[in-house]
Simulated assay, not measured.
Amino acid sequence: MLRVFSVYLFLTIFQAVTSQIPENCRRPPPGGVTPVDCCKLPTIFTDEDYKECGIEKGPLPKTRGPEVCSEHVCILKRYNLMKDDDIVDREALAKFLDDWAKKNPEFKDAMEQTKKKCLDKELPGPPEICEANKIGFCTLVVTFDNCPTMVESAECNKLKEHMDSCKAFYPF
C-alpha cells in the first residue's frame, strides 16, 4: 500500500491546497530516498495485485493524478475495500488494517494511528484528488511517522528530519 501511495502524492495534494506551505515542504524530500525505502514494511499487496491494476513497481510511480486514482481504486477493489468507484469503505479498510497488523504485530501501533488519523474523519484536499489517494497518502505519512522498523542511515535520518519539520503542514 505504501509503495503505491508515494510521497510524491504529497506534492499534488498540498500544492493544490495551499500556498502557505514552505517551499522546502512542497518539494520531494532531499536525499533520493522515500518513506518506503526507510520504513521496512512487510508486503501489504501482492505483485499480482500491482500487475492486475497496471501499477509498475519501482521506487516511485510514473504518474500522478486521476490515472493513479484508478490504480489505487483497483487495488482497493481487489480486497473489497471500496463502496463504489468514489467511496472507500472505511470500515472494511479498518478491518483490513487490523488483520494485517495481527500478522505484523510490530506495526499494530502504526495501524491504530493510521485508522485514527486517516479513517475516522474526512481528509482535506481538492476535489480532483480522489478519496483513495488521500487515504493512501495519509497512510504513508502516518505509518512512516510511527514506523517500528526504521532503517538507521544518514539518508533515512535526513528524510525523517524533513518529514518532521513539515509535519505541521499535514492536515491530519
Rank of each mutant, 00 (worst) to 15 (best):
P66S: 12
Q15H: 07
T139Y: 00
R78S: 05
T149C: 01
L76V: 01
A132N: 11
K116W: 01
M111Y: 01
E91D: 12
L119I: 08
I87P: 09
R3M: 07
F96C: 00
F107T: 00
E128N: 00
K57P: 10
S6T: 05
L140F: 00
L11Q: 11
Q20E: 14
I44W: 13
D99W: 08
K108Q: 03
K83E: 15
I87C: 03
C25A: 03
D85V: 06
I75M: 13
Y50H: 09
K116D: 10
E155V: 04
L140H: 11
L41C: 03
L93Y: 11
A94N: 01
T43A: 15
L41Y: 07
A154Q: 14
M163L: 14
F96L: 08
W100V: 01
K134V: 09
T139N: 01
I21H: 01
E131P: 10
P22R: 01
G136Q: 07
T149A: 07
K57E: 04
D49M: 06
H162R: 09
R64D: 03
F14H: 11
K102Y: 04
G54K: 02
K158R: 14
K40V: 12
P29S: 11
K116R: 13
R3P: 01
E155H: 06
E71C: 00
P42M: 08
P105Y: 07
C166E: 07
E48R: 05
A92C: 04
L159P: 05
R90V: 08
K108S: 02
W100T: 09
E122S: 09
F107E: 02
E131Q: 15
Q113D: 07
K167S: 10
C166I: 00
H72Q: 15
T12G: 04
M82F: 04
K51Y: 15
A168C: 00
A16S: 14
P29G: 12
I135W: 13
